[in-house]
Write a protein that binds this DNA or RNA. Structure first.
Lengths: 300, 300
DNA sequence: TTAATGTCTTTTATCGTGAAAAAACAGTTT
DNA sequence: AAACTGTTTTTTCACGATAAAAGACATTAA
């Protein structure tokens, strides 16, 4: 097996959902843009839809024949990228404990264990290395640096520097900038979530990321924007891993975000500074408490 | 051809230089540590040295028979890593002009042009992407963002934030920290270089990097330390590219470094701040003047 | 009994290959 | 003519294979 057709499968599933809404599908190029894939993939999708009797396809005419059922969809797990599969698998091992700092990472073993080629694992590790959790020994193995207290502190230190700057830049944006409308929209979403926090608390994670990314974008600095990838990745797995008091934590965070948004809208730099600082401090605290007391570092 | 033996060749060359200094070589493991390679490679080196009559090798006895001549060395270009070759080639194209922002990068074409496999090019591009000069379109090609004025400004903005912090942390280090000795050594090297600036000005680049890395290490933050890789990479090629007033520029920079070192040693945060700021400002200026006026950005 | 050498095994670095997906080209329809 | 469909070419993605290099194990010398 050379390359999985997950792009096709994922796009196919998304296309199925489109079928509910219309009587006939748009042109091939239009569908390509809609689904974010090439026309080649669109045509494969259409071909299968015709085969399974979902649509009648003749040149421009693509008429919907029936509503898609549950079996028409490809299984979720077949729509993931190899990179996603490897990352998930790797992070599970990393967070599941037994991953001592200083431990060496074996490409071949990882590849075999996950059931993929070594090239994909190598490429993943190279991409992943920018998160600061692993390091390469020249001409030799990778070394795990570990998800330690030190890591969390270094990460949050930079995060705080960057976010304070971005927040200040955000507040200084002219009032006709479109970001204010984005902020209003996010504020409304926060209010909505706050009112339904008891049942929807687990949706905060995604809102959190969108909110902070909006702020970081105001820095107009690619290094600051890109650094948020590190934070997002860590928080993503952290949220999945640490479910203790999740509801309470998220409720507090929503409140902090609302105060932060309020401060931004006031454009008062002092207030922005204070609100931002308060939120970042509690975010750091949350992250730190989830990290087990570090064992003694190994001799390298 | 599957893998070049540049590790062996490079280590061989370095080992030849060792031959001048002694009558007999140390044990295999010791040599391995000295050269930074495995014993397997050491044995290949010894085998060849025996073959070419450089040494007599019998178990522990490795006696030098003759001084190595110029032809004993492997050609310099055969000792480079593939990664280095690709990087150089890529940077040449990037800096040689004709590399408009927005242009797409073709892995296959690059690989063919350099004469290497696509895997190596892919891995290079992934590693290189953290420098912020290129970006990947999902499931598709890479896009060149260009070595523009905006890039230089974003880079220097972060550099300045990080270095000011690191410098302050450095100055706060206890006097029994070994870094002060390192600083003294670097200061002496600066003085020496200053006195011979007319002929050795091109050696500044390397000294510059060592000096700044020493300071950044005081931050004890892997993200700050790692970020210096971006700066080092840019300055490395910048130094090679922009030879205008090289001597003058470096002479000024050496002076600034010496003032900066002086300030650090005084441990006076105000002085450190001022000296650091002055140097970073002129470094930014130097970088900016070397970038051609940016053309209008392309429509994406 | 420690530390070296000699030998064998495992892992990394790199390539060529082939399927998936994108992109380019050519011919049609409106 | 503009936008679409049909067809062909090119590029990306991922694999298995192989030489270089590292590492582990067994043996021998000091």
């Amino acid at each position: 097996m050379s390359k999985s057709n997950n792009v096709y499968k994922d796009a196919y599933n998304r296309c199925l959902r489109l079928l509910d809404e219309t009587r006939s599908l748009p042109s091939e190029p239009e569908l390509g843009i809609l689904l974010g894939v090439s026309r080649t993939t669109v045509r494969s999708i259409l071909a299968r839809m015709e085969e399974t009797g979902l649509i009648a396809w003749n040149k421009r005419a693509k008429t919907v024949l029936r509503e898609p059922g549950a079996d028409d969809f490809f299984p979720e797990e077949e729509t993931d990228t190899l990179a996603q599969i490897i990352e998930r698998s790797f992070m599970r091992r990393l967070l599941a404990g037994g991953a001592e700092a200083g431990m060496q990472i074996n490409e071949l073993e990882l590849a075999r264990e996950i059931g993929v080629g070594t090239t994909s694992v190598r490429e993943f590790l190279i991409r992943f290395s920018r998160f600061g959790l692993i390091e390469k020994r020249r001409n030799s193995h990778w070394v795990l640096k570990g998800f330690t207290r030190a890591f969390a502190l270094e990460l949050t230190e930079i995060r705080e520097i960057f976010e304070m700057r971005s927040a200040a830049a955000f507040a200084a944006l002219p009032s006709d900038s479109p970001v204010w409308a984005d902020l209003d929209r996010l504020e409304a979403e926060h209010h909505l979530l706050a009112s339904q926090i008891a049942t929807r608390f687990n949706e905060f994670s995604e809102l959190d990321e969108r909110f902070h990314r909006l702020i970081h974008r105001a820095s107009h600095n690619r290094f600051i924007v890109d650094f948020y990838d590190v934070i997002a990745m860590i928080f993503h797995y952290h949220y999945q891993w640490n479910k203790a008091q999740e509801r309470e934590r998220n409720e507090v965070a929503v409140g902090e975000h609302l105060a932060y948004i309020e401060a931004l809208k006031s454009r008062d730099l002092g207030k922005v500074d204070a609100a931002c600082r308060r939120h970042l401090k509690s975010a750091r605290q949350t992250l730190l408490t989830s990290i087990p007391e570090s064992r003694l570092p190994m001799k390298s």
